[in-house]
Write a protein that binds this DNA or RNA. Structure first.
Length: 397
RNA sequence: GGGCGUGUGGCUGAGCAGCAAAGGCAACAGACUGUAAAUCUGUCGGGGUUUCCCCUUCGUAGGUGCAAGUCCUACCGCGCCCA
């Protein structure tokens, strides 16, 4: 048990021996995770440390969740190839609201200590910051891979960015962290915590880094790439996204973002068709955030649309007076509750028609539209299908 | 403060005075199937009376050309070097 806590979804433990001893002693540890509310959504990559925290929580340790309402404004660059803009406090506040709720999908929030780091970071004055800064050298900063690369590429690095690790490090001091968890990209910041704790005569925290996970396109999962699976995604969306994952990441996902037992994962590996492995994965993940029922529904829905090429259960409805319509115009009319058109521009609609992506369904009657000048005679309940997964149902007024 | 560079579509990155602007990534569509995977092919600013026409776009504002992302001037941002 202790063994899995320190290995599954873990890249590195510093100082491992020390942490093992602490765990074995049965002492209740203070485990820290900081999250900056830089986007309204937590994604699956964030779930990795959160799950690790849950492991600790289940083992009876105290979880301290730090919402970076202060650091979020400054912006960490650890995971960035370019400068991260400073965010407005308003945005941060908005994002913050949903964060706890999202983290609560994994952790038992009631048992956590939730803190905001503006609480202590706001109070520091220049004198104190100066003393802290004395513990770090520019040389250390610029030898970080990320920073170094940007430096070499002639990209801008602001001084403000260099302050970030100090702040995160001071969080550890403020809450007297015993262990801190973070992605491998956080290593430098996590270590800064140890340095500052020593400076303030505290016992330095131990560190657990977790691997980063690839997103849907195979690049690292990141909100700025738009390749994320979000914890707040609907069940159907989540299922579909995971099905579109590259096959090579299936097992990695199983070990990192689920808690399916390791033996079971070995069994799943033996399933010959990766599609089936992925379906199990998708269902498992959806289950974690939406429950068993919705997970099952999502799977059925997915099979319905993509395996059997049937129609989805729900689709946006366009209410429209009866008559003849040009297909292009029809595609660009906003439908459904969010009132977004099936296709954003006429040029694109035309292209889609030319690419044989548009189909009109009238009951059993299916007609491919290949001429973008086509006039469509509407019937009540006519369904327009674009590509594999865009549908719209017509309702005559 | 001075010198030299640089600023291009969602991102990245070419660009010779005649381009809606190479390549890559992402996205979308088709074929295929194991699926929204992989692979292959195509598309990828907007609009139209659609084998062609019009509009908008290359940091901002002006200028010189029949013609400007491409030349000039000023301004703004960024980088490097010097101080």
């Amino acid at each position: 048990m202790i063994d899995e806590i320190l290995t599954r979804g873990v890249d590195e433990v510093i100082d491992k021996k020390n942490l093992e001893e602490k765990l074995a002693s049965g002492k209740k540890l203070r485990i820290k995770l900081g999250i900056d509310p830089t986007s309204p959504n937590l994604h699956l990559g964030r779930a990795i440390p959160l799950l690790k925290l849950r492991d600790f929580q289940n083992a009876g340790h105290k979880i301290i969740l730090i919402i970076g309402d202060f650091t979020g404004v400054i912006g960490d660059t650890s995971d960035k190839e370019s400068e991260r803009p400073m965010l407005g406090e308003k945005i941060i506040k908005q994002n913050m609201k949903t964060y706890i709720k999202q983290a609560g999908k994994i952790l038992d929030i009631k048992k956590c200590e939730v803190r905001h780091n503006s609480e202590w970071l706001k109070k520091l004055d220049y004198h104190e910051i100066g003393r802290q800064a004395e513990n770090f050298s520019l040389n250390e900063f610029i030898s970080r891979e990320n920073i170094k690369k940007r430096l070499d590429d002639g990209k801008r690095i602001s001084l403000r960015e260099l302050m970030y690790p100090l702040m995160q490090g001071y969080d550890s001091v403020a809450i007297k962290a015993g262990v801190e968890i973070g992605g491998t990209d956080q290593r430098f910041n996590l270590l800064a915590g140890r340095q500052l704790q020593r400076f303030y005569k505290q016992e330095p925290q131990d560190i657990i880094t977790n691997p980063l996970i690839e997103g849907l396109d195979g690049r690292k999962m990141s909100s700025s790439w738009g390749n994320t699976v979000n914890l707040l995604d609907s069940a159907d969306e989540m299922f579909g996204k995971i099905m579109s994952l590259k096959d090579e990441f299936i097992i990695k996902y199983f070990t990192l973002v689920t808690r399916v037992r390791l033996q079971e994962i070995e069994e799943i590996k033996k399933i010959p068709n990766p599609r089936d492995q992925k379906a199990i994965l998708a269902k498992e993940i959806v289950k974690m955030y939406h429950g068993e029922k919705l997970a099952e529904r999502a799977e059925k829905e997915f099979n319905k649309i993509f395996r059997n090429k049937e129609l989805p259960s729900d689709m946006p409805v366009l209410e429209i007076p009866a008559g003849k319509y040009n297909i292009i115009d029809l595609l660009c009319l906003p439908a459904g509750r969010q009132a977004t058109p099936l296709v954003p521009s006429k040029n694109e609609a035309k292209r889609l028609v030319e690419q044989k992506a548009v189909e009109i369904l009238n009951g059993e009657n299916k007609t491919k539209i290949t001429d973008w000048k086509a006039e469509i005679n509407l019937e009540n309940g006519t369904i327009i299908k674009v590509g594999g997964r865009r549908f719209m149902k017509l309702k005559l007024k």
